[in-house]
Design a protein around this nucleic acid. Structure first.
Lengths: 216, 216
DNA sequence: CCAACATTCAAACACCCGTTTGAATCGTTT
DNA sequence: AAACGATTCAAACGGGTGTTTGAATGTTGG
């Protein structure tokens, strides 16, 4: 979580765990297999809980579409539960998970899609029903943005803390982050379509047309 | 961009550049100084162009507040210009930049805040004037989300391509990404406040209250 | 109690890292 | 042409990496 996959050595890990270096290769086989195990143990139950939560909500809706807020609750509430339970990983695992989404290591690029495939399919279906006026392609993009903002925020990037002009209260509390993020994302998901007549937004031709040659 | 800072060796870089290994230490001093130079050369002009673009728009607005779309144009248009100019870095630099935001290397955590400080201050001011009804704290968070989603999307994370249920057209074209992202973010920035009064937006008791013990 | 297996451990292995060195080469100037 | 600083280059340096090894130590079942 702190240094990234490549820069974190097994010697650091085994020293912190007060365990012999060879133990990880004996019990897991390799560094790759170790990190894979971590995500299977922590992310597996989290994503199962998300799907279970969605199941409950859809059962309660009696076949009708859910609201965006309900769908996001099914994503977010299980994560908050993890963050509140130090034995199940706690807030530290959520930060690790956030970072994992932009981890360049090959192992991670295999692990995450495998772990999220089911979640993505189920939530996509729910979103399609909740937002019938948004085309499929567009919705996929918006889900992409949603996962991006969520993972990025949970990662709690230290670089961006320094960017903030005022002290952000609760940067380290997932609950505070999510309370702010959910309305933001819900509004984004519901955004009017760019080319759908009524909203002029930014004319596509105009974007990038103002000269940027004033660069110092 | 492909492997992250730690996993990319100077031997890979110098081999690709068909240059002697010692050249980077001779001309730059260290690996850290090399990557710092890359960002000063590419990100410096980009952020200067963003500020210049914002200046022009504010000049045209005659002291009145800008629209969200205009503000986002000032952020996005210079980036698109970079992406269209291979000599100035091209789309590859935008992807590198996106990744840099979640790069755990120490050097990066110094470089980015330094490069973005001015940009953040100016755009924050513009947003405060465009959205007077949003409290300062909330707006800082939303800017945070905005930068997060922007960097994440530009990074073009391969992991998430596999998550997509349908083929995303234009994943590799910054223009296509941004055309989709801007309305999403604009709507997010304008989102109604979770609670008209003060703090506790979503009642904490409700979110996450559905039992998650069904976890498999 | 002892054989048989499972685990721990210190040491070594082969390899890659960023950086340094000192000689060879290049370009320019006197 | 000679001298001199700037650059290139192959080689080496010290150190860190993931992984393997083989002996020592636990732990369990007959």
């Amino acid at each position: 979580m702190e240094l990234g996959y490549a820069a974190t050595s097994l010697r650091m890990i085994t020293a912190k765990a007060e365990v012999n270096l060879a133990a990880v290769n004996y019990h897991f086989g390799s560094k790759d297999a170790l990190i894979r195990e971590v995500f299977e143990r922590r992310l597996g139950p989290l994503n199962s809980a998300r799907i279970a939560h969605l199941d409950e909500l859809e059962l309660g809706a009696c076949g009708g579409p859910l609201t965006i807020e309900q769908i996001m609750e099914a994503i977010v509430a299980p994560a908050l539960q993890v963050s509140r339970n130090p034995l199940g990983g706690g807030a530290v695992f959520l930060r690790l998970l956030g970072r994992a989404f932009s981890e360049p290591a090959d192992s991670m690029r295999e692990i995450l899609p495998a772990q999220y495939r089911q979640v993505v399919v189920r939530f996509k279906e729910a979103l399609v029903r909740a937002l019938p006026e948004i085309p499929d392609q567009e919705l996929t993009w918006r889900m992409h943005f949603m996962f991006g903002a969520l993972s990025y925020s949970l990662a709690g990037n230290d670089a961006l803390k320094l960017i903030a002009t005022c002290n952000l209260e609760g940067v380290d509390e997932p609950e505070a982050i999510i309370r702010r993020l959910v309305p933001f994302l819900a509004a984004g998901l519901r955004a009017p379509l760019p080319h759908a007549g009524h909203q002029h937004g930014v004319p596509p031709r105009k974007i990038g047309s103002v000269s940027g040659r004033r660069v110092a």
